[in-house]
């Protein structure tokens, strides 16, 4: 860690970028989503195959399947089948070493799942507990965003935003980011991404999750067909989880390239430096 004397001279000025409710819900979200993804992969591992339709035996083979084959020499080979094409995915999907180093058949490897060993019932306990945390936290965030005006003020795209979509896209690809006063506002792609995640992707994930529940299917018989049936719901839930993970990766990348420390601090203490060394 650099000492105070070594720290780059800070210029510009600090302002409060994120409100306390936004900061709290952000970090609860980060923890809940990480646990949901990892416990979800453990649940997937109990039957590492995905289908479209109402059942797993609707006639078509799974569109995604992970399996293991034992070779003549005893080696375990992981096989991943996607849309009928087969790949050797030993070590990652289908077959990988367990924590003790022994090769075992399993969908996703131990270091991606909660708990690390095959333990479906425990993963379900983690998953459903943190699903409640995510939903309650999300409702708090939306209530705050609407109530405080955060949604209308900071997230709703303006006319200028719409006109600047093309330029913003080019700027993002060139890793050129707004500096100074312009860095105090969400840019248009950022707004689109946040709105899509909060109001489209997360609700879709939740809906597909609920559609897998046999009990909730009875709340209004037939509603599960809205998402194409229970096995389609499982596929949508899986794809949605990876889209969300893709969002998080891009989000963390953007955080890193637009002033990691400044961004991190603004999501912890709320303070963001505009201009100067950290502001960029």
């Amino acid at each position: 860690m650099p000492t105070t004397a070594e720290r780059a001279p800070a210029t510009g000025y600090l302002y409060r970028r994120h409100s306390l409710p936004v900061r709290i819900t952000h970090w609860i979200n980060a923890i809940a989503l990480t646990i949901l993804l990892m416990s979800g992969l453990q649940i997937f591992n109990a039957h590492p195959a995905l289908y479209w339709g109402k059942s797993s035996y609707a006639g078509a083979p799974p569109w995604l399947e992970m399996g293991a084959l034992q070779k003549a020499d005893g080696d375990l080979v992981g096989i991943t089948r996607v849309f009928g094409r087969e790949f050797d995915s030993t070590g990652l999907f289908g077959a990988s070493n367990n924590r003790a180093g022994a090769p075992v058949p399993r969908g996703f490897p131990w270091w991606t799942t909660i708990p690390d060993n095959a333990w479906l019932s425990m993963a379900r306990s983690w998953h459903f507990f943190f699903a409640w945390i995510l939903v309650l936290n999300g409702l708090c965030y939306i209530a705050h965003s609407v109530g405080s005006g955060h949604l209308a003020r900071d997230l709703a795209p303006t006319g200028a935003d719409w006109r600047g979509v093309g330029r913003s896209l080019v700027d993002h690809l060139r890793l050129r980011h707004p500096a100074g006063e312009a860095s105090k506002r969400y840019n248009v792609l950022q707004k689109f991404a946040y709105l899509a995640v909060v109001f489209v992707l997360l609700p879709l994930l939740l809906l597909a999750g609920l559609a897998m529940s046999p009990w909730l299917g009875a709340a209004w018989p037939g509603w599960v067909d809205v998402v194409g049936g229970r096995q389609s719901a499982r596929s949508i839930h899986f794809i949605g989880a990876w889209l969300l993970s893709g969002f998080v990766l891009i989000h963390v990348f953007e955080v890193a390239v637009t002033g990691l420390w400044n961004n991190l601090r603004s999501m912890i203490t709320g303070r963001y430096r505009v201009g100067g060394e950290e502001g960029s």
Binding site: I43, F44, A46, H47, A49, K54, S55, M212, P214
Partner: peptide, 12 residues
Amino acid sequence: TRHDCVEGWSAI
């Protein structure tokens, strides 16, 4: 009816 296994598969 649809039989939903805790493992994730369904059969009707």
